[in-house]
Write a protein that binds this DNA or RNA. Structure first.
Lengths: 195, 195
DNA sequence: ATTGTATGCGAGTGATCGCTCGCGTCAGAA
DNA sequence: TTCTGACGCGAGCGATCACTCGCATACAAT
């Protein structure tokens, strides 16, 4: 942020810019994500845009941050809620993940398939570390659910496998029902942890 | 291809262009992948470049195609070789996949994290279909290795899970040894298929 | 040697891009 | 009401981009 918006109208403008950025991204893709284009979509002049954003990528960062923040919040919440629960945990958390990803498939597509991931890599790694830590503490607390030797490794494997399969299912729409997918993912991590 | 190179020198030029494209991609990233940049790196004029490539993305396609072709060839070969084998199959195939990915991590990073995936999506889907079909026929031929109800689905799940974990291990270099990863991945699909 | 064609060159074109800057406007404190 | 700084505008700058075209050169067939 170049400077922070102090008056109400400037705060609204920043909001309009972020919303317009998301819209351009979703409807026209990352290639069309130019400052002029975003400014026009926000009904704002290119100059105004640079009052509060240092450069183009800063706008992108806010859009992506909000999205990943929301999705990760939903999953982490579902996971934290059920830390004490039984074998239903996996199913519930995966279900929460699927719901979160299904909320905005268009934006998910852009974030996962169009954006250069280099910039958001620290974010993604932080998120995965956060989830992995939750999972590995769960595994440590409930050793009867896992026969694997290294909880941190098992958590890493489980999280990445589930995450990728969920994303691909949402984006590629393979001939698998949602319930079937849930069954398979539960079997995947269940069979893994107990083998 | 705008037209095909007939003389030896023009074939060499096309080769130099493709090699330069790969080099620019690896050393400077996709952002630097401009026609002028690639032409300069190839020691060729921008005009010459357009004699055999219709546009910039056609060069990119050749580079990416060659890479995915080679990696997929190695994995598919390892899989085809061991279709008759026992439980060692999984370990051997995953090992082949890891070796293939380790061959050029820099290019893998660009292909997996920087390029817009939209254009290579048909390619990727064709590749995954190819591998999935091999796996599901294997599962059908050896029902004693799997208790899952739908082989095509199990193949899809296994392939995507393994693929993503292998890529992430190569690119993120987590604190897991190669052998440990192999153990985990074998346990992952093994436990899954038998649950 | 001559000729037709494949090849290669590189300055240049038009468009687009990220971003700036000078100027007018508006809100809120005094 | 006045005044000051926050705000917003939009033409436009310099750079870069993908791509073209007129022309010189190298090759191969005769």
């Amino acid at each position: 942020m170049r400077k922070s918006p102090r008056q109400a109208r400037s705060r609204e403008m920043v909001e309009r810019i972020v919303a317009a950025g998301r819209e351009v991204l979703v409807t026209d893709g990352y290639d069309a994500f130019s400052t002029n284009r975003v400014a026009a979509a926000a009904g704002v002049s290119p100059g105004s845009l640079y009052q509060y954003f240092p450069d183009k990528l800063a706008i992108l960062d806010v859009v992506v941050d909000r999205y990943t923040e929301e999705t990760s919040e939903r999953v982490a919440a579902a996971l934290a809620d059920r830390m004490a629960g039984g074998p239903q945990v996996v199913r519930d958390v995966v279900d929460a993940l699927l719901s979160a990803l299904e909320a905005d498939p268009a934006l998910l597509r852009v974030v996962a398939e169009e954006l250069p991931q280099v910039r958001s890599r620290p974010r993604r790694e932080a998120l995965e570390r956060r989830v992995s830590e939750l999972v590995s503490t769960y595994l440590l607390a409930r050793p009867e659910h896992s026969r694997r030797p290294t909880p941190t490794v098992s958590a890493w494997v489980s999280v990445l496998a589930i995450e990728n399969l969920a994303v691909r299912w949402v984006l590629d729409q393979p001939a698998i029902t949602r319930d079937q997918l849930l069954d398979e993912l539960v079997a995947l991590v269940g069979g893994y942890l107990l083998s």
